[in-house]
């Protein structure tokens, strides 16, 4: 049994994440044109993009391994390895933010590996680079997602039942006079909400700090300005995309779990108090799925590299060649 467990750990936490990440890297290089065939960039820009892809791959791998480790922890909240005794699924709840921190940490280390300005002739753009200018709309969406998550956790914490891990449905009086009370869980009350809020703050701070490192990176020697800017934009987009995927996924799962708990377990009599909660529960579940899927797609799309300003898309170049 020990051999089987060890084999599972090796396959599930090491081999599988490495294979998935390598597959993602190959797809990005094939579909994103990182081989330079579509844009005809200078060799220095191609080398820079390869380095950026290496950093992105390492950070993604770190996040995947972290997620794998977290998922392997016991869910029941008891026994050895339980992070929070009495709170089932605690590790899995805060796991996405742990993955964000690892994702940002590996990216930050990677940003420090870019070569510093050398040589006697050096260039620099007369452009101010800030976290806000580099983050753009993607940073705004991430902050909006975080704000919705904060509001949701606070509301769920206030309406949770005793213990914070279940939702108490309003008592229902049956036609023959019986009063029934029911509770349903799991529910993201304060036992989960508090640590999730703390994890969200830490994750956002790590993201902003890493984004600042990307903004402050010196221009790459020998790389034309527009290509250097494109590499920087790609770094920022991949960072924010990965964090959006994990944060949006956490919001989606939280809404789905809360919505599921709001729905009563059985059929309610017509006009029973709290019957509207079923509708609210359905809305939350649907919203959770939609937000999770949208965040996932948004995050995965950022894996594609950004083109320098003025560069034609490969399809446009092909069309231009045919017309000529």
């Amino acid at each position: 049994m020990a051999v089987g467990l060890g084999l599972f750990v090796v396959l599930g936490l090491v081999v599988l994440p490495v294979l998935v990440t390598m597959l993602a890297v190959v797809l990005v290089r094939r579909l994103g044109g990182d081989n330079g065939a579509g844009w005809d960039p200078p060799e220095s820009a191609v080398r820079a993009r390869r380095h950026e892809l290496l950093i992105a791959s390492a950070s993604a791998l770190g996040a995947v391994v972290c997620a794998g480790v977290v998922l392997s922890l016991p869910v029941t909240g008891t026994g050895r390895g339980a992070l929070a005794p009495g709170v089932p699924g605690f590790a899995q709840a805060v796991g996405p933010f742990a993955a964000v921190v690892v994702f940002c940490a590996v990216r930050a280390v990677g940003e420090l590996t870019w070569p510093r300005p050398t040589g006697t002739v050096r260039t620099a753009p007369l452009v101010r680079r800030t976290v806000r200018s580099l983050g753009g709309a993607r940073l705004g969406r991430l902050l909006a997602t975080a704000l919705v998550l904060v509001i949701a956790l606070v509301v769920f914490g206030l309406v949770a039942g005793e213990g914070g891990r279940q939702f108490d449905h309003p008592p229902v009086t049956s036609p023959d006079g019986w009063v029934s009370e029911s509770s349903r869980g799991p529910f993201p009350g304060w036992p989960y909400g508090g640590p999730l809020l703390a994890g969200l703050v830490v994750a956002l701070l790590a993201t902003i700090g890493t984004l600042r490192l990307i903004a402050r990176r010196s221009p790459l020697a020998g790389v034309p300005g527009e290509h250097d800017a494109a590499v920087r934009a790609t770094s920022a987009a991949r960072l924010l995309g990965g964090v959006q995927l994990l944060t949006g996924g956490t919001l989606g799962i939280t809404l789905w779990i809360a919505g599921h708990a709001l729905r009563p377990g059985g059929e309610l009599p017509a006009g029973a108090p709290g019957a509207w909660l079923s509708g609210v529960g359905v809305v939350l579940m649907v919203a959770g799925v939609a937000i999770g899927v949208a965040s996932g797609i948004s995050g995965l799309l950022t894996a594609m590299p950004r083109r320098p300003a003025g560069a034609q898309a490969p399809a446009a170049r092909l069309t231009g060649g045919v017309r000529a």
Binding site: T120, V121, R122, T123, P125, L126, A221, P224
Partner: peptide, 23 residues
């Protein structure tokens, strides 16, 4: 002919780029 250690061949500066020669 460049100086002893010119470093990587510098790309042509863009419209609002600075270019300094330490030598």
């Amino acid at each position: 002919a460049g100086p002893a250690h010119p470093g990587p061949r510098a790309a042509a500066p863009g419209p609002t780029e600075l270019r300094v020669d330490l030598s």
